[in-house]
């Protein structure tokens, strides 16, 4: 039985420039199933970030239909939280804890300060940041900043987490550990993940379902089911052959 969270059909999007408009997305279809981990694989500049921004409600699409839970998407909402690639997405004038509490107060307006505090401490503990709660973003490493962004997003209990290459600027070792952390958090929460990356290995390691975005055809998406069992590793049986298949399709 399928339970579709995001249903996108024939979506169009153009950027307006002084010399006219440039069509970035043309007739794009995408389904994201509730609770699943979906990856979109594409080269930089193919329009995958734009797709996420439309899903977040930051940009307005010009044509096609886009339903979230059966209702048309109109505005940004804390149901869909975006995590960016860049490290500076935490508000630099707030401590890590305040960065979490600030949206939490808006998300759960009826809860007491103690309850909200509990939520933020829990999220920080899950991401291994309890010790860093009082620090300011500039005092954190890149990996810690992305952990804090993850903690902040998950604490809000969104239906859908939109991730725009969140680990692309990290070194390999940090990226590995954050990938494992993300999978664990996904298993423990009810969140649906939509994860954009240009890294084939990362997409295979994380996804249930994998879309390749083709920039030559204005963002047309081709769907691949990920056949690999979890837990996964780069050395497991079938990883290489699936990666090869995707790589061939990617080129």
């Amino acid at each position: 039985m399928s339970d579709t969270l995001v249903s996108m059909k024939g979506l169009d999007f153009s950027y307006r420039t002084p010399d006219g408009s440039i069509r970035v997305l043309d007739q794009v279809d995408l389904n994201v199933e509730r609770g699943e981990f979906t990856c979109i694989l594409g080269r930089s500049g193919c329009g995958k970030s734009t797709l996420l921004r439309i899903l977040a409600g930051f940009e307005q699409h010009s044509g096609g239909s886009l339903l979230i839970d059966g209702t048309p998407l109109t505005a940004p909402s804390m149901e869909r939280i975006m995590i960016f690639q860049e490290f500076d997405q935490l508000l630099p004038w707030k401590s890590v804890r305040e960065n979490l509490l600030f949206p939490l107060r808006k998300r759960f307006p009826d809860e007491s300060a103690a309850q909200l505090h509990e939520r933020s401490e829990q999220a920080l503990a899950l991401t291994g940041l309890s010790q860093a709660a009082g620090l300011y973003p500039r005092q954190l490493s890149g990996g810690m900043k992305q952990r804090a962004a993850l903690a902040r997003a998950l604490a809000l209990e969104p239906k859908l987490l939109l991730m725009d290459e969140p680990f692309a600027s990290l070194d390999l070792k940090t990226r590995d550990s954050l990938q494992q952390l993300l999978l664990r958090l996904w298993r423990e929460s009810a969140a649906t993940m939509l994860f954009v990356t240009h890294d084939i290995q990362e997409a295979i390691l994380l996804s249930d379902r994998l879309y390749i975005m083709d920039e030559r055809e204005q963002g047309r998406l081709t769907c691949y089911e990920n056949p690999l069992r979890r837990p996964r590793s780069h050395s497991m049986e079938g990883f290489k052959s699936f990666a090869l298949r995707i790589a061939r399709a990617f080129d």
Binding site: R53, A56, M82, E86
Partner: peptide, 13 residues
């Protein structure tokens, strides 16, 4: 930076 504005919009401000 536009990103901070996006973060604020994401929180429904």
């Amino acid at each position: 930076h536009q990103r901070y504005i996006d973060v604020g919009r994401n929180y429904g401000f």
